[in-house]
Simulated scan of single mutants.
Amino acid sequence: MLTIKCAKCKSKLFKYKKIGQGRVLRCWKSKITRLYDGEVKGKNFVCKSCGNIIAEIKDDRLDMNSDAFTYSGTKIRK
């Protein structure tokens, strides 16, 4: 389980169930288990604290901006 955090202000955004050892490029909405401090503005997912754009929202996923977030935790092996 990964905890996704804002790269600017370090506030927690959401918990994500990452399966596989690859990079975090997309987050599927069905695998987000808990939402902390993020909000939807138009077609973007942004941090409430600082307004940093974390991802672009598509139909069933978030296309992550790799410079806008950090994460901690462990990835689940396939």
Rank of each mutant, 00 (worst) to 15 (best):
M1F: 02
M1P: 04
M1L: 03
M1G: 02
M1H: 05
L2F: 02
K5Q: 07
K5C: 09
K5L: 07
A7V: 07
A7N: 15
A7T: 10
K8S: 10
S11N: 05
K12G: 08
K12P: 14
L13E: 03
L13C: 03
K15I: 04
K15G: 01
Y16V: 08
K17R: 13
K18Q: 09
K18P: 08
K18H: 10
I19Y: 06
G20L: 10
G20M: 02
L25P: 01
L25F: 02
W28T: 03
W28F: 15
K29W: 03
S30K: 13
S30I: 01
K31Y: 09
R34G: 03
L35W: 00
Y36V: 06
D37I: 04
G38H: 11
V40M: 01
V40N: 07
K41S: 15
K41R: 15
K43C: 05
K43P: 09
N44T: 12
V46W: 00
K48I: 15
K48Y: 06
S49D: 10
S49W: 01
G51I: 04
G51C: 06
N52P: 03
I54M: 09
I54A: 07
I57A: 03
D59L: 14
D59R: 12
D60A: 09
L62G: 04
D63L: 15
D63P: 00
D63I: 15
N65I: 12
D67V: 12
D67I: 10
F69P: 12
T70G: 13
Y71N: 09
S72A: 06
I76F: 13
I76L: 11
R77H: 10
K78P: 15
K78N: 10
K78G: 15
